[in-house]
Structures are given as structure tokens and as C-alpha cells.
């Protein structure tokens, strides 16, 4: 499979990364090189194989329902690039 320029633009949009038109062709080449490389995986017969989705093979521990976190709005907001009082602030969204 190989990516066309439109797909590169669509992916950039999905990933919320602004890409200038000039960069599209470069990215297209680089991404296609990577995709070309991973194409060799098609050689492998994976019939009936269960995918491995995690690094650890065990069941999940469950946490007791206790409130022991939060209640520190200043720490939560301390790194915010922009805030309005006790809220995070972003450019106005028109719905």
C-alpha cells in the first residue's frame, strides 16, 4: 500500500498536526518508505493467531472504590498555558 498526498493531508488532519504544502511530498516519501518496509509482514501466515495486545500476560487488578486523589485545582492548573480563573481556557468554540 502506498500513500497519496491526499491521504497524508488527511492523516495530518486526524493527528492535528499542521503540515505545510511543501512538507507533504517529503512526508509522503518518508512514510511510504516506512510502509514499504513493513510490507514484509504480509509474508507471515497469521491464520488462527490471537493478537498480543499488551506487554504483560496477566489479569487486571481492581482498585477499591476510595477517594484518595484530586482536590488540588491549583496543581492541576499550574502548568496551563492559559486559564480563566479556575478553568482551563481555549479559543472560543462556536457550536
Amino acid at each position: 500500500m502506498s500513500l497519496d498526498a491526499a491521504t497524508v493531508r488527511r492523516i495530518a488532519k486526524l493527528a492535528r498536526i499542521r503540515v505545510d504544502e511543501a512538507e507533504i511530498a517529503i512526508l509522503q516519501t518518508e512514510l511510504n518508505a516506512i510502509l514499504g518496509y513493513v510490507d514484509q509482514l504480509n509474508e507471515v501466515d497469521v491464520t488462527g493467531i490471537e493478537p498480543l495486545s499488551g506487554g504483560a500476560q496477566m489479569a487486571m487488578r481492581l482498585r477499591p472504590d476510595i477517594c484518595n486523589d484530586g482536590e488540588m485545582p491549583e496543581k492541576i492548573l499550574a502548568n496551563a498555558p492559559d486559564r480563566a480563573g479556575e478553568f482551563f481556557a481555549v479559543p472560543k468554540v462556536v457550536e
Binding site: D65, C67, D69, G70, E71, P73, I76, E86
Partner: peptide, 22 residues
């Protein structure tokens, strides 16, 4: 009492960004 994946309170309301963990 607490959230699905954190120990912050799941209580409705509260001061803005108070019932919030990292």
C-alpha cells in the same frame, strides 16, 4: 465514590477542576 480510573471524587458539582487527579 471515585472515578473509573482514578481516586478523584465522582461526586457531582464541586469547585471547578477540584475533583480532578493528574
Amino acid at each position: 465514590k471515585s472515578k473509573l480510573f482514578s481516586g478523584a471524587s465522582a461526586t457531582y458539582g464541586g469547585a471547578p477542576n477540584a475533583h480532578v487527579s493528574f
